[in-house]
Design a protein around this nucleic acid. Structure first.
Lengths: 276, 276
DNA sequence: TGAATAGTGTCTGTGAGACAATATTAT
DNA sequence: ATAATATTGTCTCACAGACACTATTCA
């Protein structure tokens, strides 16, 4: 039977480092998706928001706080990719999810138990595939980004019950021309260095959306161009002009016979990703 | 006194895994620079080539083969960044080098001794800063890339004495829209999975050159626009048009009073990176 | 003088940004 | 009829590609 600790300090005092490994590797997953906000106006299309899956911690450290889904690597049998897929399977019950390694975080004190070096992964999924299948300790949080000025980013995560808020400062790196790193300025709701991981991951997603087709991993098979445009817009954090958007994605999609009707306005053709 | 093994098989048979760690982390460094090919024609500017620093291995595994500079992480004291800087200092005697983490390689069998998970770093340097300072076991290799067709890349590395050649196949990943990974198709000269690391790193460099200012880390303080253009050209692997190039970099550089003369042709103003 | 690079002018076509106009639905 | 989205047309402006032209040096 597991002992119940009363505080993180007590837990750490009793934490037997030698019982476990001195150095552990882990994978942390940014599982991104897009959520639909139900709308009162029967004419309007439902608005969309970026969302991310978080896990409620039940153990120390950071007990009762939210964190990214993640887990330790079994170094004898697993690659980091394997490890990530195993975690995703556990949390979402899905196997076929777009995955991409992002960055390895290894600050000496990023985990109070011992040295834990964590590789972050970005995963993208169409929410319709799993809405009800997620693990009970997991929850989808809508993401809102505020760019206070050029140097600060405030992130608010909301799952309808809990609100998580943190701020990140952009810090220019020395010895370089235009790169910067992130530092946590303010955070009390999210475990570990996960605020950094989230902000860096969202930046990566924003950048890659422009020159790759990864968005289609977040779309169902059939979608309207309006829906697709909404997804681009929530990722990029800005409105796009309809004609320009249609020009750009014209050769990536193909029109089908299906129509989406019932919106109190002109119906729309459904499109499909055209995989060359 | 260290025992001398006669073969890699013998070495591995005697390798005591328990004497060392079961799992090790390491950093491998892609130290890129640009080399000048001396030219016979007094009129012509010297041609440039991409070059990379490699290390001659003196121990098993992969004894007597070349490999990327790298080393094991000391997990009690170092971050991966620290580790990379320490290795760079050892090999080049320089401390201030542009660094950027790229990717973490962790195939189960990538090192025959035991599980070694390696994070690759890209480092960029102006060769004038260190030409004679490099460690004696290290050597600069000129890089030539051949894109046999869309799916194969052949890389030839040459340091004037040794020639290293390997081929890489681009493999489309499942579950995705446009990403691919690399697989080694043919390699007998370069240790470990370093062919993959090199090709992936060069791709990253090519991409980043377009939307960042990292090139200036490979330039001396004063340079002509012709020299700068040459560097872009060897990185991108194609010629650029002069007027277009000048338009693009116009606001990144500032003209100085210095001139570069003696070329048997019209002299050129020297420019400097304009750090906003 | 000529070969080579340095540097600038300018034309053209492509494509993004912007705005307008038309089409079609459910209430 | 009206509010809302769907879809297309078109104008303009910025800018990259392309080519031409002039400037300047040293053997």
């Amino acid at each position: 039977m597991k002992k119940e600790y009363q505080s993180e300090a007590e837990f750490l005092a009793n934490y037997n480092v030698n019982k476990y490994k001195q150095l552990s590797l882990s994978a942390d997953i940014l599982l991104f998706s897009v959520s639909e906000e139900d709308n009162s106006n029967y004419r309007k299309n439902s608005e969309k928001k970026m969302s991310i899956l978080l896990i409620k911690r039940h153990n120390y450290p950071y007990k009762d706080m939210w964190c990214l889904p993640g887990g330790f690597l079994n170094p004898e049998t697993e690659t980091l990719d394997d490890c990530t897929k195993r975690i995703l399977k556990t949390e979402t019950n899905l196997s076929n999810i777009y995955l991409e390694q992002l960055y390895t975080y290894d600050a000496l004190d990023r985990d109070p138990r011992c040295r834990v070096i964590s590789t972050s992964y970005m995963a993208l999924v169409d929410k319709n595939r799993l809405d009800d299948k997620v693990n009970e300790n997991a929850s989808w949080f809508d993401i809102t980004l505020y760019n206070d000025d050029g140097n600060f980013i405030t992130v608010v995560l909301d799952n309808g019950k809990d609100t998580i808020k943190f701020s990140i400062k952009k810090v220019l790196r020395e010895l370089t021309t235009d790169r910067y790193t992130f530092k946590i300025k303010d955070n009390k709701d999210l475990a570990f260095d996960h605020p950094l991981v989230i902000v860096a991951g969202m930046e990566r997603l924003r950048n890659k959306v422009g020159y790759t087709d990864i968005v289609f991993n977040m779309m169902p098979e059939y979608f309207t161009l309006g829906e697709l445009q909404q997804v681009y817009e929530v990722i990029l954090g800005k409105k796009l002009l309809d004609p320009a958007f249609r020009r750009i994605i014209a050769d990536k999609v193909e029109k089908t016979e299906k129509m989406k009707t019932g919106g109190g306005h002109r119906p729309s053709y459904m499109f499909r990703y055209k995989n060359k």
